[in-house]
Write a protein that binds this DNA or RNA. Structure first.
Lengths: 232, 232
DNA sequence: ACCTGAACACCGTTCAAGT
DNA sequence: ACCTGAACACCGTTCAAGT
């Protein structure tokens, strides 16, 4: 009630500033101009106010980063709801979350890279935990095995999508340097010193990151299925 | 030959500066005082020279970051050589690399966090690729499946150890905020809205990150073994 | 009640000047 | 041949002053 009133009052101020509006613009700025463009002064410009006005809505930059991260987790959840049926098998829920998280890390690389290693307990994160635990619980494992599988899936998804995002968020020069490393360096190593690398050159250069990620998710699902069979 | 001469000449200069020495001190500084302490001015202080002297030995800060990262990969390789027999089964080589990488990300969190998402083709990285490809090749998979397994293992190891390092490299205040999120927020959620989370509270609070990582590595190894069985 | 703008203590990097 | 130090264009954050 008080919260609603506050929001209304804020919308009525001269600048129209609010946490909502700041998060929106921060995401837009970071994804459009790169991670390093997300500074208080640039964000102020973006919002048409002085850079320090920000401190009336967030404690510090880290506070903003967490809010921005939860917005992207919300986006991921919405996408799962669009693409996975409510009564789908638990394996398909995990696959759907994996695909949605990969999409998020590709669409919002700067934000994803900034937040993937944080556990914040914010709203969308809590909903994601509940969704995943509810799905994995259907596999019929012990509580300990259920949590192990959930965390293995969640950590691997966050970490691999986070790595994808980190690459996407690097500035063009560095990204090119890294992206071409396989064809530029590994493909021309001397065969005497690096025989195995040379024998697999074509496959190394051709490997797609998302395929590798989804292969790993399948391995985690298969391990849980095997544990369930062994347990029953 | 010219390289050796250059190094000798460098050691003879007044300040004793060299790439070697700078990398050493940079690692020491970053791990002792935190990621944000690794600035050119602080590094200059550490070395007893002006901060800008650095630019005679590295093109820019990114160049230093890559050198520092390769030093930690070298440390990881040395540890694998100490703990895994040369004729060990391929599965045990992967397990040894996983344990060594986790140790590296715990011992050098700042450096690991800075570099885990980079593919640079530097010396130690090349040796690591050759070691892992040679090991996975023993499983008897097709070239495509071999590379898929190698990349799944390598990416997952880098990403999960990288996430561990990112947490370890955060400053104390932020790390505490994140580390306690499970017990501080998730353990006290309302049972009506988050029943699955509450049912697994003890297991969620008690889960150990390294155990989750090693469980994931076992899932990847098991998937490769299953593919080998299916193929032969 | 909310925003501004000066100020503080920092960044990475360049380049003319020194030894 | 190598290093210094001023300079440039930036950071996040605080706080007294304004409207």
């Amino acid at each position: 009630m008080t919260e609603v009133l506050c929001t209304v009052l804020r919308m009525a101020t001269r600048t129209g500033l609010s946490q909502e509006v700041i998060v929106d613009r921060a995401i837009g700025l970071a994804e459009r101009e790169g991670l390093s463009a997300l500074s208080m002064r640039r964000l102020g410009q973006e919002l048409g106010v002085d850079g320090t006005a920000f401190y009336r809505y967030f404690r510090d930059k880290d506070d903003l980063v967490l809010a921005v991260g939860d917005r992207v987790t919300r986006w991921t959840l919405d996408r799962v709801r669009e693409t996975v049926a409510a009564d789908a098998p638990w394996q398909d829920v995990l696959r759907g979350v994996a695909r949605a998280a990969w999409a998020a890390s590709t669409k919002y690389p700067a934000v994803f890279a900034m937040t993937f290693s944080r556990t914040t307990g914010q709203e969308a994160e809590r909903a994601m935990v509940e969704l995943l635990l509810g799905s994995v619980a259907k596999a019929g494992l012990s509580a300990r095995q259920t949590v192990l599988t959930y965390r293995s899936f969640a950590d691997t998804t966050l970490a691999l999508c986070g790595m994808n995002a980190s690459v996407g968020a690097m500035d063009e020069r560095v990204r090119e340097k890294d992206r071409t490393a396989w064809s530029r360096i590994y493909a021309v190593l001397p065969n005497e010193t690096y025989p195995l690398t040379r024998r697999h050159t074509d496959e190394l250069v051709g490997a797609r990151d998302e395929e590798i990620f989804l292969h790993t998710v399948e391995a985690i699902i298969a391990a849980a299925e095997a544990a369930a069979r062994a347990g029953s």
